[in-house]
Design a protein around this nucleic acid. Sequence first.
DNA 1: ATACGGGCAGAGAGCGCTCTCAGAAACTGC
DNA 2: GCAGTTTCTGAGAGCGCTCTCTGCCCGTAT
Lengths: 349, 349
Amino acid sequence: MSDQISGARPTLEAVAERAGVSRATASRVVNGGTGVREALVEKVRKAVEELGYVPNQAARSLVTRRTGAVAVVVAEPESRVFADPFFAQQLLGISRELAVHDSQLVLLLVEGTADYDRVGRYLSGGHVDGALVFSLHAEDPLPGITRRIGLPTVFGGRPGWPAAEGDRSVLYVDSDNRGGAREAVRHLVSLGRERIATVTGPLDQTASVDRLDGYHDILMDADPRLVVEGDFSEAGGARAMAQLLDRAPDVDAVFVASDLMACGALRVLRERGRRVPEDVAIVGFDDMASVAELADPPLTTVRQEIEEMGRLMVRLLVRGLERRSEEDSGGRPLSSLVTPTRLVRRASA
Amino acid sequence: MSDQISGARPTLEAVAERAGVSRATASRVVNGGTGVREALVEKVRKAVEELGYVPNQAARSLVTRRTGAVAVVVAEPESRVFADPFFAQQLLGISRELAVHDSQLVLLLVEGTADYDRVGRYLSGGHVDGALVFSLHAEDPLPGITRRIGLPTVFGGRPGWPAAEGDRSVLYVDSDNRGGAREAVRHLVSLGRERIATVTGPLDQTASVDRLDGYHDILMDADPRLVVEGDFSEAGGARAMAQLLDRAPDVDAVFVASDLMACGALRVLRERGRRVPEDVAIVGFDDMASVAELADPPLTTVRQEIEEMGRLMVRLLVRGLERRSEEDSGGRPLSSLVTPTRLVRRASA
DNA sequence: ATACGGGCAGAGAGCGCTCTCAGAAACTGC
DNA sequence: GCAGTTTCTGAGAGCGCTCTCTGCCCGTAT
């Protein structure tokens, strides 16, 4: 019987009546139950149970101004959600951490200009308490939107748009791309390699730039022919590697800015008869399980805690929300997070 | 000025006042504007514009009982969202189609038992108008949950739990796995191959079973040694292929139930010195752009319209919602959809 | 001119919940 | 035993919106 009530869902009113208390008391119990006599708490709990009561979120958020939902905004999903197991894992982290905070994940994929409109309207509509934004490029209007409407926002990766530089109020979670790159290159140097090249990601993304900076930190005046721009795809890595071999046949090590690209590079090296790591040592970046370990040879790579980054984004956002609602704003202001990376040695270097 | 109102968002009341009309009229205009004189429509539009009014969804859905959101429930995301570009693409289709219908996508990833609880509560809470469910296995409680609470639901792929068989009220969108497999095998036969094997997906998934059935449709009494179970992963495909070569060294063609597995198979064949397609012809399944075309040799495969399937799920759900709200239920009942597949010939067979 | 019908606009009653505020009940101290 | 506290409970006012219902105004027919 009671598990088939498909029609009218019970209201708080009904629960209160059944428990013989007022709506206010029932509400108190449902929301934590502090300050209510134990006997009544029990009664209400029982009524909730029997009726199969579930609070109506719409009514609740109408008055609390909280929705219990967080938007995850992804620009250019085609190139991202997709090709990128990276993002999938981050999403997993986000989802898990949101579950901990009893919040829902509203996924907004943004493709065209019209979508920006739609998403902008949605975010302004008070449908969500905050937003986690993954936007790749500098000209993205998203950051401006969330800022204008005052929606708490955390970015995935250091945002690259000009005004953000040095603006401490812009919150993001990133991994230590530069440090990781440094460690990778240092490792290659320690191996005695002398012509160390790098295949970068698209240089309009901060992650790519930071990794390249890390490379230059160690190899301050590297031969510019040893730097080739890739696009984070397997094919792009292959293309870049081919180009590199043509430009600098004497290359003996490559720091490739992603595992996927490293795979492409590995393939080209194999095709051209270069042995890895004997002739050319390779270090990747990401440590994506499905790629790095299975590569031939298994990739030495820089590990980032991808899922952890997703979780941290949520925690940062939630902390911001708490502050805001407490009108507290005490303590020192929230600041962006940079998660450590670490070199994982396998066979390729 | 007006684009920085971070505090109080304007209400319909405010719009009405500014336009010099009643709240009711303002509401009419905002929701389509039929039955309102053009002059007033203009005035209200202007007021909306000037105030930057955005309707409060909570208030609206409190009275309409519609949320404008659809849940996408994914069981076992780790093995799915992840490894599976397949799912990503379907999600893209879903997102795009939902945008068309002005609905939001609430992503629910389900992992442990506790999650089922949480998700069940959420779905019962009236937070969403319907659900799109991807659940892999027979024992999944999800279908039961949505059914019990009477939430309109469409499944991704034919559900495999026992009670669903033959139940026309269970709606799903699937591709023609069996037909596609048949076509693949028929093609291999037409090539004159005589020892045609198959690497299946996990046989607790209907898609895998259906593809295997398609294989048997053509090869009614195939040697059981020619059937090996894989797991839809690259590594699994490699493993299965190796096993196959051991069991039946004379195999001259393989229908592999996914492109990813086909890649693994290709790799093993290469390692063992078998030429593709000369010695062993391979046909994959999925036609995933990032895999099939880039494989060496490029894969002949069965194409499914993955994104389209996502879109169809949404359309089916939306149609169900419309019917339900119109109390119409006229016309013939909605029925599940099976999208066609087609063989794409490349070099591997 | 009066009666009647149709198209439009406004008043107002909720939707289900939270939260303040005030009053009841139980406790303390003198 | 009574005033002064403290703890708990209930009444009731909204949150912002939709939607029905009533009434106005206009055009047309009588």
